[in-house]
Design a protein around this nucleic acid. Structure first.
Lengths: 342, 342
DNA sequence: CTGTTAGCGCTTTCAA
DNA sequence: TTGAAAGCGCTAACAG
């Protein structure tokens, strides 16, 4: 296993018979005598030379590393990974590489990740914040590191943010259910510590109030964090004496858990059900699941574009982008209430 | 937007009233007088000092960057992202960060990615190779960069590899179908340029031969790359005069496409169907989809552990790890053939 | 144990 | 235009 010693610029300069600086100029596109340019390029090729980015960024005036840091909830989560891919696609056109990590919704892990990313002097950060106060994020912001928060509001004021219209999406679904005749509508949401869960709940509460529909304590379940918990919550909700005729679930896994519960109860063709966030095969279930869809790739794309504009020097005030959601009627959300509601 | 100038080790040394090297020693855990250690740590805290990894790795004898490069097919693909997460989890315990990128199955993109990763002097590489010859991978291997290929065989000899037992998995499923009475079994596989597709086909062909079952040209569809193509292929296969009584689909999306086709034809409760690779909600379809499951997280974990051992100096011969697959009987694969097969 | 010194590979003055 | 020289922030010899 022969460990080659990598050629340096000095080696290339020596072989080409030019000064070190000339090699640097050629490789950076600074005008140089075409004759020398040729010799340098030849020498570089001959030696299999490749620039060392660490040394480059260390010496450069702007200290760019051409790397951006991405803090996700979990790189393996479909939402996160779609967002990741969109960021990669925008970055790749500029020669940017992405250092990604998973916070697992833990503020401490978010801090740690941001720490190592800053140590690596990433050019900018895209973060799905846990929502907890984060001095690491704040200090990065103070240091002037461009940051974009995505999917959730920033815990640090003055940071660019890209989110979906969570409230509007849920409110729209509630209005649609109301138009079908539903008056008793249940709601299941994730941990209230999550910005998205709070927003979606507010959208629900606002729409219900606007429509003059009452909610009962047992019909609104918050802080439901797993598929199993959602299954249990919905089982409880519809096992009660008076149950809703429709239910809105405010997150992917909760939607699946709720559907399992409805199937268990034999109510999946009876109770109207709308989920927030689309998921693969939603259209292949029976009945197909109607959803309020957001576009994770678009969230990532917009966040990345915003970050790039900051890297290019845009120093305008912090932007807050809200992307629309889209209701996809597949069947489960179009079930009418029973003819004679009790 | 006040852009702070980051404190350097020199600043810390000055504030602590010690030499530069002492600061370095303290920060690297080299024994130092406890009194000085305290002063250094205080000064560092006061200045909000953080080490610069670029400078560190530039100067270190081993040039470690504590970063590993990961080349996936597509970071957004569930298989890839589960693998990614497993690699992250192993790496995080050692303070390693992951630079991931998507090749999109394009050899040229794979080359480019490997190029920029090498330029960044990653400590090691984990690659899901497209399979095409790759001089970049080869030259990295020659340079002594630790590399592990995962999910597919390495195009470069002598590289550690972790894959699933693709042949065995498919062969097992075929034997199970045979035991149920099936004799005419169809097969749908991805592009033959993919190592996994070839392996799975060989497992199929070998099992069929071993069991003395004949296959017909129209019953074995290879180079089927998308869900829609699989849907069309299966529609064609079962629209023919004599059709198989069972079908094996050799990849995620192909499985979904095939199921759609069977539903279209009204045959989903008649034709036995087994897919390779598990997918979310497979158990919620009607009938639930039986699969040959592999464990992407385990593939990633093993690959990462292998890489770490190489980083720790293990210079034994290249290892080839083959992980078992697991058959998950859910229903679709347990449908018996018609009583009087025509 | 501690401080001083010499670079890692590169970009960027500064003269020529 | 080009080359020589001065560092970027850090670690690793080397003396004390």
């Amino acid at each position: 296993m022969n460990v080659h010693v990598r050629a340096t610029m000095k080696d290339v300069a020596a072989l080409a018979g030019v000064g070190l600086a000339t090699v640097s100029r050629v490789l950076n596109g600074v005008p140089v005598d075409p004759h020398l340019t040729g010799r340098v390029l030849d020498a570089a090729r001959q030696l299999g030379y490749r620039k060392d980015t660490a040394a480059t960024s260390l010496r450069r005036a702007d200290r760019r590393t051409n790397t951006i840091g991405l803090v996700l909830q979990d790189v393996a989560n479909p939402f996160s990974s779609a967002l990741h891919r969109a960021v990669e696609d925008v970055g790749v056109q500029r020669g940017l590489l992405v250092l990604a990590g998973s916070s697992d919704e833990e503020p401490e892990r978010e801090r740690e990740l941001l720490g190592v990313l800053r140590t690596r002097r990433v050019d900018g950060l895209i973060v799905v914040p846990t929502g907890a106060p984060d001095d690491e994020l704040e200090s990065a912001h103070r240091d002037g590191t461009p940051i974009v928060c995505v999917d959730r509001a920033s815990p640090v004021p003055g940071v660019d943010t890209v989110t979906a219209d969570n409230r509007g999406g849920v409110a729209g679904a509630v209005r649609a259910l109301h138009a079908l005749g539903h008056r008793r509508i249940g709601f299941v949401a994730d941990h209230s510590s999550l910005w998205t869960a709070r927003e979606r709940h507010e959208g629900f509460a606002a729409a219900m109030a606007e429509l003059g529909c009452r909610t009962r304590a047992g019909w609104v379940r918050r802080d439901v964090h797993t598929e199993d918990a959602a299954r249990a919550a919905v089982t409880g909700m519809f096992g009660a004496a008076t149950a809703p005729t429709a239910v809105v679930t405010a997150q992917n896994w909760l939607t699946v858990g709720a559907r399992r519960a409805l199937v268990d109860l034999g109510l999946h063709h009876t109770v109207a059900h709308v989920g927030f966030d689309d998921f693969p095969l939603a259209d292949m279930l029976d009945p197909p699941v109607s959803v309020i869809a957001q576009d994770p790739a678009e969230l990532g794309r917009r966040a990345a574009l915003l970050l790039l504009s900051r890297l290019d020097g845009d120093s305008g005030p912090a932007e807050t982008v809200t992307l629309p959601t889209r209701y996809i009627a597949r069947g489960s959300g179009e079930l009418p209430p029973p003819v004679r509601p009790s």
